[in-house]
Design a protein around this nucleic acid. Structure first.
Length: 562
RNA sequence: UGGGGCGUCGCCAAGUGGUAAGGCACCGGGUUUUGAUCCCGGCAUUCGUAGGUUCGAGUCCUGCCGCCCCAGCCA
């Protein structure tokens, strides 16, 4: 696949180029992807991963994977494992550059001491509520804590006792001493350390005080020699603090923070809090539900890593808050899936088709290619009989103009096989069509006739005597509106019909397909054999994405014009 | 109304004073044993808005308007 970006160089790469020519970092480029292990990665993270690892590749630099694990009450190893798996699956690696902010706890502690020794930090015994009151508001300055000017020695002792576990959670915190009247609220003596008597997934019970994001992130970047610390827009307000800490600490290196806009997608939610709620309240099967925008969900659905990377390149990187159309993600998937998926036949919503002039008991086998490009390669055999399953939507009793599928009196081609002409239908007691009756033209074997007559419509089919019953899962967006975040409560706009399970039939060759593999069912879309619900006795397929359907569009436009 | 950002086609997005790239979507047309793919063609006299500077402004200046972020001991 073409890996060339659709747009010019983005502003982040532009800044890096500028830094390289000014020699700010001696020409080296080091980035990092810093997830907090408190949830599964989603397509928004993919944007960041492609950016950070992509920049490292483009500039012959490095990209570290660093877990931002400074809050043991929210984090879990389940997530550190899934995150690594997802990044690898996306096609990126970090070699031996796997780090944890918790690796730096001792160094961070020493730096906190340094701040105290220079009268730049103090232990505050105000309660959380009091601190909030003292902080002021965006339009009013805050007030100094009564503990702000306690002696250096006392701060040192108190901080040591915090570490020693002498105080309960919330008893006190370490704060930077900056400016309680600062117009940027993040500079009003921000918290640096808090007490958390909680077991950490890596450091166990070694610590009962943990650094905040602000105190850990920039210093971790400094320790790792990160040149460009790329984060999302909401951290822009933190940059003055990021820079302040770095300039007041004896760090070995000073990185540059650059912020870009996080990804929003239509028809979905992206916040970890909301995704967690979908999982916990069982609106979905789990983090890897094919309807989830998680990496694991998309993988299970049948999306490809290449397609996701391509999507991330197409959306670009900027500082504009934006919501990308889901159609673009689907386009990227179709483009990649089209190039790599073998073609098979599967009937999703089956209706019987009986060939009335078919020799009783006869079975014909056709050699057919699974390639859309070259009919001479990748041949498998398909059985055909007089009893077939065809797609219910491929028949219409009163066909509109330009309909060239099945209808009374109309002739169509059964892909790879014969021409059949519809002679009638059989209905059940409720008037539902139970069976379509056809005759076939024995001269049309393989889909062409000696008289070269044109048949515009070609439909897919499966021999009812050989077809493999399967559950075929069709998905719609999880929400009923394209901007679920705008609803008062996003759970009130959940789409009840986001997953429809069809009882379909597949051509026998599909029996061999392995779980996790994606194929095209001719005319129906790309389907991935499910890795969780599938059994050898009863296959389960997920539709990753439909094919473009210009007939549906014709119908839609016709309706709108009426 | 304090501070920090952002406003270029329906959705993204290039553009760094010289006369509006590209992708998606959409609309035509051609090829086709997938109404798929593929291929051709169309799609911003205008850059939130009002002024100003300039031979020349999406790009510079000023004023408005709109949207996003910040008052966690979350990240």
């Amino acid at each position: 696949m073409n890996e060339t970006p659709e747009t010019g160089i983005d502003f982040v790469r532009h800044q890096i180029t500028l830094d390289n020519s000014s020699g700010r970092f001696g020409g080296t480029v080091a980035t990092r992807f810093p997830p907090e292990p408190n949830g599964y990665l989603h397509i928004g993270h993919a944007k960041s991963i492609v950016l950070n690892f992509g920049i490292a590749q483009d500039f012959s630099g490095t990209c570290n994977l660093r877990f931002d694990d400074t809050n043991p009450t929210r984090e879990d190893v389940e997530y550190v494992d899934s995150i690594q798996q997802d990044i690898r699956w996306l096609g990126f690696g970090w070699h031996d550059r796997l780090f944890y902010a918790s690796d730096y706890f001792e160094q961070l502690y020493q730096w906190a001491l340094h701040l105290i020794e220079h009268d730049l930090a103090y232990v505050d015994e105000l309660t959380a509520d009091q601190i909030r009151e003292y902080r002021g508001t965006p339009t009013e300055p805050g007030r100094n804590s009564p503990w702000r000017d306690r002696p250096r020695q006392e701060n040192l002792e108190l901080f040591a006792r915090m570490r020693a576990g002498e105080f309960p959670d919330g008893h006190c915190i370490l704060r930077a001493k900056i400016d309680m009247a600062h117009p940027n609220i993040n500079m009003r003596d921000p918290a640096l350390y808090r007490i958390r008597h909680a077991r950490h997934h890596r450091t166990g019970d070694d610590w009962c005080i943990y650094p905040t994001y602000d105190f850990a992130h920039g210093q971790s970047d400094a320790i790792e020699g990160i040149t460009h610390s790329i984060c999302t827009l909401e951290f822009e307000n933190h940059r003055p603090l990021y820079d302040w800490l770095l300039s007041h600490l004896p760090v070995p290196h000073v990185p540059r923070q650059i912020e870009f806009a996080r990804l929003n997608l239509t028809w979905t939610v992206m916040s970890k809090r909301k995704l967690l709620r979908l999982v916990q309240e069982k609106y979905v099967e789990g983090w890897d539900d094919p309807r989830m925008p998680t990496i694991s969900g998309m993988r299970r659905r049948g999306y490809t890593a290449e397609g996701i990377r391509d999507f991330c390149r197409r959306i670009g990187v900027s500082k504009t808050n934006s919501t990308v159309d889901l159609a673009l993600l689907e386009f990227s998937q179709r483009e990649d899936l089209n190039a790599r998926s073998p073609r098979f036949m599967g009937v999703v919503d089956p209706v019987k088709l009986t060939i009335t002039n078919w020799p009783a008991g006869q079975v014909e086998w056709f050699d057919a290619s699974t390639s859309a490009e070259d009919p001479t390669v990748d041949i498998r055999r398909i059985p055909c009989t007089g009893n077939l399953w065809v797609e219910r939507e491929d028949f219409m009793e009163d066909a509109p103009r330009k309909w060239f599928r099945l209808a009374p009196g109309k002739e169509v081609r059964l892909k790879f096989a014969w021409y059949v002409t519809c002679t009638g239908v059989v209905r059940d007691a409720h008037g539902e069509i139970q069976e379509i009756l056809c005759t076939y033209d024995p001269e049309s074997r393989g889909g062409e006739t000696p008289d070269q007559r044109k048949v515009k419509g070609t439909i897919h089919w499966v021999s009812a005597d050989h077809g493999l019953p399967a559950h075929i899962r069709l998905f719609e967006p999880l929400f009923t509106r394209e901007d679920p975040d705008e609803a008062d409560d996003f759970t009130t706009v959940i789409n009840e019909h986001s997953c429809t399970v069809m009882n379909g039939y597949l051509e026998p060759a599909l029996q061999e397909l392995k779980a996790g593999e994606t194929v095209q069912f001719l005319r129906m879309g790309y389907f991935c054999r499910d890795s969780r619900l599938d059994t050898p006795e009863h296959p389960v397929f997920n539709r990753a994405v439909t094919l473009k359907d210009s007939w549906a569009r014709v119908i839609r436009n016709q309706r709108e014009n009426e």
